[in-house]
């Protein structure tokens, strides 16, 4: 615990950065809120279903038509929201630490553009029409683009964050231009893509989620493994090397982890962009610059934002719904703006 205190940033000087004890309490509170939202997500929907039916649906399943609504619709979207939210939060924390840019998210590496382009090709040229079909295209697109960015953004001495961001912008621009060209000349593709682009966690059956879980698990382990070295790198590459951090290896592991997380989340839910940017940023305001705490908080706060938005999206236009990707920024942005108005300036 003492080294956490030592790592307190020079000049961060903000009142909200708390001691390890209070951070731990905060973590427990966040966990409780998340659990509460998980329950709420099972209870709230366009049709009123009694809590007893919800309970029975999970623990005494029968062929009652209301129970199907719980098991087939609310349970999967809740679990998907939890997994996707966590993945987006941690991937955002990773990219912010890696680029030392507190306002980056995984999209900055061209990842979303890659996923989007791959899905557009699948829809427009190959005639794929269902979400499960899109999934692997999106995942592959994200992985390939990251690989391209890695190659393009490296020189003999390794990767610099600035070069990778430029490479991401480069690959992202070309792909988004090509994607738009495909969409605007193919009405069928445009029609399908505008729905996928909104980002949603509905109608993703759980058997779509299972094959991605090993990737997420590996990526989360990697993320927490590199959090220490990333802490050291935050103080400057030279200092980190002096502390025995292997820069290239850390960067590559971090990129693998964030690609799997953000790519997997996008593959399942479509592009949900704001969560990965805002949550780690807010987490940093709460816990200070220690990446381990930022990762832990992001892993909890991101699904909180996502599930709360999803529940809100079911309620505001009842019996209709708004896709979660639309709602998150309307829930998150006011919070972010209010926070930044309250706080003294804080960078990294």
């Amino acid at each position: 615990m003492t080294d956490l205190a030592l790592r307190r940033p020079v000049g961060s000087g903000t009142g909200t950065v708390s001691g390890p004890r209070r951070r731990l309490i905060g973590l427990v509170v966040a966990l409780a809120v998340l659990l509460g939202l998980l329950v709420a997500s099972m209870m709230i929907g366009s049709t009123a279903i009694a809590p007893t039916v919800v309970w029975d649906a999970l623990f005494h399943p029968s062929n009652d038509i209301d129970q199907f609504a719980i098991r087939d619709f609310r349970l999967p979207r809740t679990i998907v929201g939890l997994v996707v939210g966590t993945a987006l939060g941690v991937s955002g924390a990773l990219i912010q630490a890696l680029t030392r840019n507190p306002l980056a998210d995984a999209g900055i590496l061209g990842l979303n553009a890659g996923a989007s382009f791959a899905v557009t090709v699948a829809v427009g040229l190959l005639g794929v029409r269902d979400i499960q079909g899109y999934m692997w295209f999106a995942f592959a697109g994200a992985l390939i683009v990251t690989l391209m960015v890695l190659v393009l953004g490296s020189n003999r001495r390794g990767q610099s964050p600035v070069m990778m961001v430029l490479a991401g912008l480069c690959v992202g621009s070309v792909l988004s231009g090509a994607g738009s060209a495909l969409e605007l000349t193919n009405p069928d593709a445009f029609d399908a893509m505008r729905s996928w682009n909104a980002g949603s966690i509905v109608s993703r059956p759980l058997d779509m989620l299972w094959p991605t879980l090993p990737f997420f698990a590996i990526a989360l382990l990697l993320a927490f493994a590199v959090s220490g070295p990333l802490n050291a790198m935050a103080l400057g590459d030279e200092l980190a090397v002096a502390q025995g951090v292997r820069l290239v290896r850390t960067r590559i592991l971090a990129i693998i982890a964030l690609t799997l997380l953000a790519g997997g989340a996008t593959a399942i839910a479509g592009p949900i962009s704001f969560v990965g940017l805002m949550v780690p940023h807010v987490a940093r305001w709460i816990v200070g610059p220690d990446q381990r705490w930022i990762f832990a908080y992001s892993a909890l706060l991101a699904p909180i934002l996502l599930l709360a938005s999803d529940i809100l999206g079911r309620v505001v236009m009842r019996p209709g719904e708004i896709p979660v990707g639309i709602v998150t920024s309307f829930v998150g942005a006011p919070v972010l703006i209010a926070l930044v108005r309250q706080k003294k300036a804080s960078g990294l």
Partner: peptide, 19 residues
Amino acid sequence: MSAPSGLDPHAGSSRTVWS
């Protein structure tokens, strides 16, 4: 805003700082 996705060609560029 975060990514050069689909129809938003300007996204992403604003936050990049490069000398």
